[in-house]
Deep mutational scan, measured.
Amino acid sequence: DVEPGKFYKGVVTRIEKYGAFINLNEQVRGLLRPRDMISLRLENLNVGDEIIVQAIDVRPEKREIDFKYIP
């Protein structure tokens, strides 16, 4: 289970104008929005990159997770 405030290693699987989709595993995916990136820009991410993200909002009923990147 993903818990708000905890850090997780994930893989960038898709990049859109509104953010990057990060997979923690095959069943768990969330969104990293540009506003939640500190010292990292969306255009510097590539599909396949491994990054450490912090879960900031977890909505299991909608199967949605918002992430934050903190270097």
Rank of each mutant, 00 (worst) to 15 (best):
P71N: 08
P4N: 10
E3N: 09
Y8G: 00
E64T: 10
Q54I: 13
A55M: 05
E64M: 11
P60T: 10
K6D: 04
E3P: 05
N46C: 11
I65G: 03
Y8Q: 01
G19E: 02
L24D: 00
G19F: 05
Y8N: 00
P4A: 15
G5P: 03
L40A: 07
Y69D: 04
D49S: 06
L45F: 04
T13R: 07
P4G: 07
F7S: 09
I51W: 01
R59W: 06
Q27G: 13
I22C: 01
G48H: 06
I70V: 14
F21G: 01
V47C: 06
Q54H: 05
E61A: 13
V12K: 00
V28D: 09
P34Y: 08
G30D: 01
F7E: 05
G19N: 01
L31N: 01
R29A: 12
D49M: 14
V12P: 00
V47T: 07
M37T: 05
V28H: 09
Q27S: 14
L31Y: 05
E26M: 14
V2M: 07
E50I: 15
V2C: 04
K62G: 07
K68Q: 11
E50W: 15
R14N: 06
V11F: 12
D36E: 06
R63A: 13
L42F: 08
R41I: 08
N44C: 10
N25R: 08
R63D: 12
F21R: 04
R35A: 12
P71M: 08
A55H: 01
K62R: 14
R35E: 11
R35D: 09
K68F: 09
F7Y: 13
N23V: 09
F67N: 00
V2Y: 09
V28G: 04
V12Y: 01
A55Q: 02
K6G: 10
D66K: 09
G48R: 05
V53N: 00
A55N: 01
L24N: 01
I22A: 00
E43D: 13
G5T: 05
D1P: 13
K62M: 12
G5I: 03
K6C: 10
Y18T: 05
L24K: 00
R41T: 15
V2A: 05
K6S: 09
R35Q: 12
Y8I: 02
A20W: 02
R59L: 04
I38G: 15
L45R: 01
L45N: 00
E3M: 14
L40S: 08
N46M: 15
V2S: 02
A20E: 00
V53W: 02
I65Q: 03
A20R: 00
L40M: 11
G5L: 09
F7H: 07
R14I: 08
V11T: 14
A55G: 02
V53Q: 00
I56K: 12
S39R: 10
V11Q: 09
V12F: 01
R63C: 10
D49R: 05
I22F: 03
V28C: 08
E3G: 07
K17G: 10
I70K: 08
V58K: 05
I51V: 09
R41E: 11
S39W: 11
E61L: 10
Y18Q: 06
R14D: 04
D49T: 08
I51F: 04
L42R: 03
V58H: 06
L42E: 02
A20V: 09
R35T: 10
A20T: 03
R41S: 13
Y8W: 02
D57L: 10
E43H: 12
I52H: 07
P71T: 08
Q27K: 15
N25F: 09
P34A: 12
V11H: 10
P4E: 12
Q27N: 15
I70C: 08
V58P: 05
P71Y: 07
V2F: 10
P60K: 11
R59D: 08
V58R: 05
G5R: 05
I51T: 01
R63M: 14
E64R: 09
P4V: 15
P4K: 15
P4F: 10
K9Y: 11
L45E: 00
L31I: 09
K6E: 09
L45T: 02
I51R: 01
E43N: 11
L31Q: 02
Q54T: 08
L40C: 07
E64L: 14
Q54E: 07
R41C: 08
R35W: 10
Y18I: 08
K68G: 14
A20S: 03
A55C: 12
